[in-house]
Design a binder for these strands. Structure first.
Lengths: 108, 108
DNA sequence: TCCTTTCATCGATATCCGTCGATGTTATAT
DNA sequence: ATATAACATCGACGGATATCGATGAAAGGA
């Protein structure tokens, strides 16, 4: 258990604040929402327009409608997207602040 | 399957390039490497120093040594960290370009 | 040489995740 | 009222994942 003492026993160095347990849990939860190719594509799709109808998403991806709905729910619960219903259709859009927060966690 | 024609049948709009399948697969794979609180903490730890010895990581986290080694392998295979062995000890460091690439995927 | 330490890999297990068909709900059309 | 369409939820199933103990490989010390 001995080691070269370049670092204190508890990570991390002085420059970067060590993350608290809640902080790293929340970050991991949000990255997990992006840990699927379909969800990455959905985010990319939403980033190209103010709003996108779910029917456009189900038509774009070669997946069943329940599966697309499942992925949207995960993105919604992670706070990365939000939705509103108008009549029969549901429209999804990005939550830019949430995306920016993730980007901030990856460095200045 | 009819829908209001605000978007072309195939996502996405003109401003953002639609991701190719390999692109979204690789992005998802890298985000997946960050989809765990321990791995987020490891990345945060590495961001505070040029190099960190594995023995410091096993001492920091309340996990068995094989588990920490497992997480390091996942980060290594995702290209987010790299390691070098000097004598008995193994030292890990960030791959800054990989982190920057992820940050770029989340917007300018 | 033998023992200890560090780290990686293996094998096993419990849990989580992506996917789908079936079903329910709400709104529009006939 | 009935039918149709869009979307969400449920239940189930197969594959992936996090964790651990045991083991192996390589280096250093007695």
């Amino acid at each position: 258990m001995k080691s070269i003492a370049v670092l204190p026993a508890i990570c991390c160095g002085p420059e970067t604040e060590p993350l608290t347990v809640p902080e790293r849990d929340e970050l991991a939860a949000r990255f997990k929402a992006l840990a699927d190719p379909t969800r990455v594509a959905i985010i990319n799709c939403l980033s190209s327009a103010d709003e996108v109808c779910v029917c456009n998403l189900t038509a774009t991806f070669d997946l069943s409608q329940p599966t697309v709905s499942h992925h949207l729910k995960i993105l919604r619960e992670a706070g990365l997207v939000e939705s509103s219903r108008r009549g029969t259709w549901a429209y999804y859009r990005l939550v830019p602040e949430a995306i920016a927060a993730l980007r901030g966690a990856l460095g200045a």
